[in-house]
Amino acid sequence: MQTTFSVTAGDFTKAGTASSQIKRMLKQLGVPQHTIKRIIVALFEAEVNVIAHSFGGEVQCEVTPEKVFVRVVDTGPGIPNLSLAMKEGWSTASEQVREMGYGAGMGLPNIKKSADILEIDTAANNHTDIRMTFYLNGDNQ
């Protein structure tokens, strides 16, 4: 089963809409609650990143009997220094993003902790492509 949602840059009123709908879909498919939680936390972090930092993008989710694959792709401007962005507490978030309760530099590290496999392709002035795999029989709690 596969589904795709578009994510609009800067629109915090809709932040979490894609994550919420995918959460409901995973529940309907009978994915275990703890697995849903780590999928959705990672997805929501990535969705907020698209809204806060990018020109817009989309969320793709594919569910098979063995795994849930989530891909979050935006259209730029890319992350100039990925190793810095993976450090807890490092952030380029605006004051507006921080007022929403986000932008503390915990997003990418939290995604890494949540996913069984995390792959990120990005570069300055390019898109960011985050691919997360969650095994349905795995447990990284």
Partner: peptide
């Protein structure tokens, strides 16, 4: 909310002054 998203426990009560949809 970034900090709340790091929690892995269940049965949590969130106490906050952040009165928005986030």
């Amino acid at each position: 909310m970034s900090d709340v998203l790091t929690l892995r426990d269940d049965d949590i009560l969130l106490i906050t002054g952040l009165a928005n949809v986030q």
